[in-house]
């Protein structure tokens, strides 16, 4: 599955949320992906300084850190503070004004938008910043090639809204043989504050509930690490977290969503967002293992900032 990582922003008023497109877990993506040449380069302007706080998704945390590093090369005395504990921490931070940017790896819930609108009188602005593809990982030694979405549901969910009548607990149930046949699955996942958790729940679990035995890890990286060290492990996480110790397996399911309207932003924030949507910013997107936006989307997003 693929998520369109969005990113929220407020202080003086805008928030950007995430939109989701889903396909399969890609492999060997790094060599193929390049930035759309139509995306303009970033132009420096004067008088950009001040504080920029970002609180939200930990999946996007690193991307923001990279961006912040790049942005600070342009504007050395901008102070950027980045905090990432999960997408669900973004809306409260925007609401209380503790952050100007709220990166999220899922769309805002209407409850969250309501609360924001109630306080500020206008809706948060959503800017899409990168595409991510969410992958189901297994250990590198696991011979499995493919899982259907219904099987994923029966592995991760206790409510099995996907429709399979029996839950899947051993690898034999997904047609592995030999020593794998009797081996119980060891399931890893994200903590509930994360947008990845919510996205997976909504799309792979058909809005069902996770099993109690899903080990909730406080970061996408620790999901991957757990699976690396656990032969029977299976878990989900962004494709950017892939390492040599795990294998991403293919799935399928599609889903799309729309963004919200924008309003005005303070200069630092606007410039930072413009930087993100520039060539340099989108190159960083690839570096962190996400997929860059097409030029058309960038153009649309830039229009929201005017």
């Amino acid at each position: 599955m693929m998520m369109h990582k969005g990113f929220l922003n407020n202080v003086t008023k805008a928030a950007l949320a995430g939109c989701l497109i889903a396909v399969t877990a890609t492999t060997a993506f790094a060599e193929a992906v390049t930035v759309d040449p139509k995306i303009p380069a970033y132009k420096k302007v004067s008088g950009v300084s001040g504080n920029l706080d970002s609180i939200g998704s930990d999946t996007l945390n690193n991307l923001l850190t990279y961006w912040a590093e790049g942005f600070r090369k342009e504007y050395p005395n901008v102070r950027i503070q980045i905090e990432g504990k999960g997408s669900s921490t973004a809306p409260p931070a925007l609401l209380s004004g503790t952050a100007q940017l709220g990166p999220m790896s899922r769309a805002m819930k209407s409850e969250e938008i309501d609360a924001f609108t109630k306080k500020y009188g206008y809706a948060p602005t959503r800017i899409d910043v990168a595409l991510d593809s969410l992958a189901v990982y297994v250990n590198k030694d696991n011979p499995i090639k493919e899982l259907s979405l219904q099987e994923v549901d029966a592995i991760f969910s206790k409510t099995r809204k996907g429709g399979l009548s029996e839950e899947i607990t051993t690898w034999g149930q997904v047609a592995l043989t030999g020593p794998w046949q009797q081996a119980p699955m060891s399931i890893y996942g994200r903590n509930s504050a994360s947008g990845t958790y919510g996205y997976f729940k909504e799309n792979a679990l058909f809005k069902g509930d996770f099993k109690d035995t899903v080990k909730e890890q406080p970061g996408s990286a620790s999901v991957v690490m757990g699976i690396t060290e656990d032969k029977n492990g299976i878990g989900y996480s962004g494709i950017g977290y892939k390492t040599s110790g795990v294998k991403a397996i293919a799935l399928s399911k599609k889903k799309g969503e729309k963004g919200q309207e924008a309003s005005f932003l303070p200069a630092v924030t606007t410039e930072f967002l413009k930087y993100i949507l520039s060539k340099a910013g989108q190159e960083i997107v690839i570096k962190d293992g996400f997929l860059p936006l097409p030029a058309k989307v960038v153009e649309k997003e830039l229009a929201k900032l005017k």
Binding site: A221, Y241, T243
Partner: peptide, 14 residues
């Protein structure tokens, strides 16, 4: 420690 150990995208290198 917590952050780069559990949340860094390139965990092996970190």
């Amino acid at each position: 420690i917590y952050d780069i150990g559990f949340q860094s995208p390139n965990v092996e290198a970190a």
